[in-house]
Design a protein around this nucleic acid. Structure first.
Length: 898
RNA sequence: GCGGGCGUGAUGGAAUGGUAGACAUAUCGGACUUAAAAUCCGAAGGCCUCAGCGCCGUGUGGGUUCGAGUCCCACCGCCCGCACCA
């Protein structure tokens, strides 16, 4: 009998699938379609074990759907634009294009051995001119539809690298690469009008039933809807043009507790006042400086500057309030000005205490009446808006009402009395898409002295990035955007007047590339962005799978793009929400190994350092119930003939004695190169085969949770697959034998079909695999006849085929299965076979299990009750007393109440 | 601070309100073997007066129920997201 050898069978079946084009997606009306998509990878150069997990999950779904009679679309591509390619070019010469395409080649060659059922004929990279040219066409259509516009915006500018930085790239106020102090600079940038769709993007979340609640919540928070009152304070003796200060508040019910007005250092009034006030100018400058990171803001002290200016309270013109410039007020939110109500806002209270401003309560707790004034050092009284409170200084609505009711009443009152109006605000800003980078999709517009900003003509698309067509290589050796320095690329005729003009050199944010690739996969070679019939057929994505880290930006942008593409006629109406179901998978983690080293540094000081080691360089063993580890190299060197744990132990102690070279084990964490706690999928496949890797990453943890990669787990998975092969081969080669205990095995089989199917359909892959282990054990021990065993083994191959497709094909062929297991119809569980004729019922007395009875499954309740009461366990527990009540749950349990 | 989630053996984890710990890892014992690996068989939540017809047990305390890991309330702990958001 041959042995299970993945290195032989895996390439063989991959070639067979390729030959039969098993996974080619073809449109046809005779079958329902199913579109399964995993978030496409960035071509960093190597695939990661996390990719293996992600794509295996998608592949399980894809293969299962194929077996259940669907036309399956399961494509793969690369999110190929972005900074790393440019950084690589800057660091080590070469060109981002060469770097990227070479990485893509490598990664494809690493992915193919995993045997994913992908339609590779649809593959593209977002840096293909065929792709980004269509993206430019979309941009032009969006422009025409008013979905893109240009405006001045404040950006983080790195003066050394000469580029705009995203907020995430600013660390402690310095550029993440250059370390230079980041400047605020106003630039003209392109923006997508995503904020126009705030309300719709928020409301539509409700319809996404198959999205994780967590993701929907994160998106809702990001969009950040709030209802409040916008009104103005009139100023006293203010500079011209500043006779009013517009403020926005979500708590207009606390208006009678106002004690100051605060404005942002960037507020026009603050900027005006600082001209004649050097102290204020200094204060404002100080506020503008400093980190813009959340952490820095969190720690920053709340500081204010009394402008000396005063305003009148809208309800009482005799009531004057001071105006402060305060460092915690953001110009970007609301109107850049607030009124402070210290009694009911902690931040305002801190501020009021610091500058000795009055604290006036407007409402009190309904329970302990009276005292709501924050005691010295006590917190502000901020109950949930849903709580009913007693208004002490109310002006609208009942005396006793909830915060929400009071807010509504206050807005109503103010509108009727001409003090402002109710407004709904969103936190969501327009999406700035301009980047001063080379390796991105060029924005297809031209700047003409005569005509201004002119869109390119569609027939001139793609506006391709220059490579070295005219003999001029792109120069990445100096900072800044190479497109700006290119001698000829910028020059072009104006699409409108034909006079010499210059191209826009900004490129698009890479999030644009990933905001519509799912639609492009439905017609990847079309000469328009999409092909309507194909989009109509294949869209939406039925199941989208990816990391939670994309919960906000990528998914929100994609939802915006789908709507914008519908408006511009590139997607049908039904695609406005492009992802029907979303699944966010967990990471693959690994424990970490390090040794401590003491190094003499100078004469007297000793510096300790940690050195991390790769898992393959470490031998982990167990001693006295404790897991310990030594370096592989030490084992080889000094004890080539280690025969026992004790000897290894001795080695351990020796090492410890020497210089603490023993390996410490640190608990599992996300794999990272710096911690060396990585396993390389390529090495794993070479060692165990793709099926083992696939089986393992699905087996031990629920898919949404992190899974810890362990060497023992991987070996166990490999052993199990070897066992399955062996059992199947034995069944295949067994002599014909009469029927034996067939029914027991077939019952197990149908239960396995049922449970595995349920697991696959509900992302319970770990549960499916546990069931497959149990079914394998049952088959192994079965005394059934050869026909039944053969049938069970074939079913096992089918049930395993989404997870371990190569092994399954091999077994299927071995057992004489017809065609490919990939194309075989998914087995269906027979309900009749899952119900036992007799059932064993546990008998409880007062909820504690005391005995059990085995009865025919349809025995009537009275009969069951009689038998239950007659059992020894029940008699003993009742001790002669009569039961108060007996509950019989047919087929489940009997509970006697004593 | 706000919002969400999770607490089950040594470990990863199973359990439509119905026999808690499936399945796997690690561990221990046995068979086979010169030996090891591989393979096969078996044990195993804790406690006790240690195989019984016993007690306890799903973070802690309460509640609902004939019956709670599961539902409700409070607390403790951990994880994640958001946040000078007016």
């Amino acid at each position: 009998m041959s042995r299970y050898d993945p290195s032989v069978i895996e390439p063989k079946w991959q070639a067979t699938w390729e030959e039969h084009q098993t996974f080619r997606a073809v449109r046809s009306d005779d079958k329902p379609k199913y579109y399964v998509l995993e978030m496409f990878p960035y071509p960093s150069g190597r695939i990661h074990i996390g990719h293996v997990r992600n794509y295996t999950m998608g592949d399980v779904i894809a293969r299962y759907k194929l077996a259940t009679g669907h036309n399956v679309l399961h494509p793969m591509g690369f999110d190929a634009f972005g900074m790393p390619a440019e950084n690589a070019a800057m660091a080590s010469g070469g060109h981002p294009k060469d770097w990227t395409y070479s990485n893509i080649d490598t990664m494809v060659s690493q992915m193919k051995p995993l045997g994913f059922g992908l339609d590779w004929s649809r593959m593209f990279a977002t840096c293909d001119p065929e792709y980004y040219g269509q993206q430019q066409a979309l941009f032009l259509d969006f422009l025409e539809a008013g979905l893109v516009y240009r405006k001045n915006a404040v950006v983080n500018w790195d003066p050394v690298d000469m580029t705009v930085l995203a907020n995430e790239q600013v660390i402690d106020g310095k550029g993440w690469r250059s370390g230079a102090e980041v400047e605020r600079r106003e630039l003209t940038q392109w923006f997508f009008k995503i904020s126009d769709m705030s309300e719709e993007l928020l409301d539509a979340l409700d319809g996404l039933d198959d999205w994780p609640a967590k993701v929907k919540l994160m998106q809702a928070n990001w969009i950040g809807k709030s209802r409040g009152l916008q009104f103005a304070f009139s100023t006293i003796d203010a500079p011209e043009g500043h006779d009013r200060i517009e403020v926005y508040t979500t708590r207009p019910d606390t208006l009678m507790g106002a004690s100051f007005v605060g404005i942002s250092p960037d507020h026009p009034l603050a900027k005006h006042l600082e001209k004649d006030n050097p102290d204020l100018a200094a204060f404002n400058a100080e506020c503008r400086k400093g980190g813009t990171t959340e952490e820095a803001l969190e720690k920053a002290e709340k500081r204010g500057f009394d402008t000396g200016l005063r305003v009148r309270h809208p309800f009482d013109t005799a009531w004057e309030l001071p105006v402060y410039v305060a460092n915690f007020i953001l110009m970007e939110y609301g109107t850049g000005a607030i009124f402070g109500c210290p009694a009911h806002d902690q931040r305002d209270l801190d501020f009021a205490r610091k500058y000795d401003l009055p604290v006036v309560s407007t409402f009190a707790s309904a329970e302990d009446e009276g005292h709501t004034l924050p005691e010295d050092g006590g917190p502000a009284y901020v109950p949930p808006k849903t709580e009913t409170v007693v208004y002490l200084r109310g002006f609208a609505g009942e005396t006793e009402q909830t915060g929400t009711e009071a807010i509504d009443a206050a807005i109503d009152f103010c509108e009727k009395n001409g003090v402002g109006h109710g407004v709904t605000k969103f936190r969501l800003r327009d999406w700035g898409l301009s980047r001063q980078r080379y390796w991105g999709c060029p924005i297809p517009v031209v700047h003409c002295d005569a005509c201004g900003v002119v869109p390119e003509k569609k027939e001139n698309l793609p506006i391709a990035l220059p490579y070295d067509e005219d003999g001029t290589a792109i120069d990445f050796s100096v900072p800044g955007n190479p497109l700006d320095r290119h001698p000829s690329w910028r020059s072009c005729p104006c699409p409108s007047c034909g006079q010499p003009a210059t191209r826009e050199t900004d490129t698009m944010d890479t999030f644009v590339d990933s905001s519509w690739y799912f639609a492009r996969f439905t017609a990847p070679r079309a000469d328009t962005p999409t092909h309507m019939a194909d989009a109509q057929y294949w869209m939406n994505v039925d199941q989208y799978i990816g990391g939670i880290e994309h919960a906000i930006l990528h998914l929100l942008y994609s939802r915006f793009f789908a709507r914008a593409m519908h408006i511009t006629g590139h997607l049908p109406e039904k695609c406005k929400e492009p992802f029907n179901a979303l699944f966010t998978q967990g990471m693959v983690t690994h424990e970490m190994y390090y040794t401590g080293h003491a190094v003499q540094d100078g004469e007297n000081s000793i510096v300790a350092s940690l050195v991390y080691h790769f898992p393959e360089d470490v031998v982990v063993f167990s001693s006295g119930g404790e897991r310990k580890a030594v370096l592989q190299s030490r084992v080889d060197e000094t004890v080539t003939d280690v025969a026992s744990v004790e000897e290894l132990e001795a080695l351990w102690k020796l090492d410890e004695w020497h210089n603490a070279r023993h390996v410490r084990i640190q608990s599992s964490a996300k794999m990272s190169k710096s911690k060396k706690n990585v396993v390389d999928p390529v090495a794993i496949i070479q060692q165990y085969g793709a099926d083992t890797a696939r089986w393992f990453v699905l087996s031990d943890s629920p898919p949404e949770r992190d899974v810890e990669w362990t060497a023992s787990g991987a070996e166990a998975a490999a052993r199990h697959l070897g066992r399955v092969y062996r059992i199947a081969a034995e069944v295949a080669e067994a002599e014909e034998s009469p029927t034996g205990d067939d029914e027991a095995l077939l019952r197990e089989m149908h239960k396995a079909i049922h449970d595995v199917t349920l697991g696959v359909e509900s992302f319970g892959f770990n549960a499916s695999i546990a069931r497959l282990y149990a079914f394998t054990n049952a088959l192994s021990k079965s005394k059934a006849g050869s026909d039944a065993k053969r049938q069970a083994a074939k079913t096992l191959a089918q049930l395993m085929s989404p997870m371990t497709p190569h092994l399954s094909e091999e077994i299927w062929a071995l057992l004489g299965g017809e065609g490919l297991v990939a194309n075989a119809p998914w087995p269906v569980a027979d309900p009749a076979m899952m119900v036992e004729d007799t059932v064993t019922l546990p008998i409880q007395v007062n909820g504690k299990r005391r005995d059990e009875i085995t009865v025919p499954k349809d025995m009537d309740k009275a009969e069951v009750e009689k038998l239950a009461l007659a059992t020894d366990g029940v008699k003993r527990a009742l001790d002669g007393a009569a039961p108060k009540k007996v509950i019989v749950v047919p087929g489940r349990i009997v509970n006697v109440v004593a």
